[in-house]
Amino acid sequence: MSTEKTVGVIGAGSFGSAVSNLLAENQKVLLYERKTEVVEQMNRERKHRGYEIHPNVSVTNSIEQITSKCYLIFPVVPSQHFKEMIIDFSPYLRPDHLMIHATKGLHCEFDIDKADAKSIKLKDIKTMSELILQETGIVRVGCLAGPNLAAEIMEKQPAATVIASRFDEVIREGQSALRSERFQIYGNRDILGIELAGVLKNYVAIASGAMSGLGYGENTKGLLITRGMAEMIYIGNALGADKKAFLGVAGIGDLIATCSSPKSRNFTVGYRIAKGDKLENILTDLGEVAEGIRTLKIGKLIVEHTGASAPLLQTIYKVLFEGLDMERAVKLMMRYYVNADAEYLDL
């Protein structure tokens, strides 16, 4: 390995491509994409999903190439496929690889559609960093999370993100690879908290889309975001995370961004449900997965298993999967409130 840096990105989805372009401003980037035809097309056209690919980015489908050339790798793969991907990479990864993932999802060692909340084990629900530790020999793991809508990053708008890792070195390496005048990068050692903040906001975004679909305005959104965050803190707490991460850029910051953006997939799901669309149709149209759907299913199991307080999650779940009427759901939600404001700070 030379000291000349080439960093790797796994996954050429919209966010993977955005991360690649950001990284490419500072060094060479190898972007891994599984499908040969996509690789060829990207290298030929130098365009992907309507955006230019930075000249410093080369696209490859060779695992060996990326793992031998890059000591720093950013996997950006939907949580559903993450395990499969990491197992493919595992034989090529060594303890001198550093990995910073940017996937806001959870993995379950059981079938989430068949599991029974009482009998699941919490340790079978894993964040992506836990999955990396479990399936590879890598130790120095981090995650990237924050209000980072891919389209806005591609348009080079100012933004911030958080890199979380137990290793300061991983934070430093990530910061140096991503540094940019229009991109602030905060560090945090609480990786579990940051990962969960990024994941749990998904279902709140669905709810936000739904409120918007019903035609409600900013007051409702303000209520939803604050109480949604309280709920995220409660669920995070049940999984052993500290509340602090939820109050930062990757928590409330990301929550506001996704809850306000019609560009977010999760938001779109809620919006169209409220407009009377069927979930199946929405998901078919979206093509790519909305992590929020998985988060909702896994979140429900966690809440029922641990008894964490999460009325919003329960209600949204009922709307999406049990045919609860949207208007009624809002009434139910409004009936539920706690007396004290900001009580989660005492947790």
Binding site: T3, Y71, R94, P95
Partner: peptide, 14 residues
């Protein structure tokens, strides 16, 4: 997987 312990102390080849 067989591993080299030295790699834990190495970053970017150093």
């Amino acid at each position: 997987q067989k591993i080299k312990v030295k790699n834990y102390f190495v970053t970017n080849g150093v």
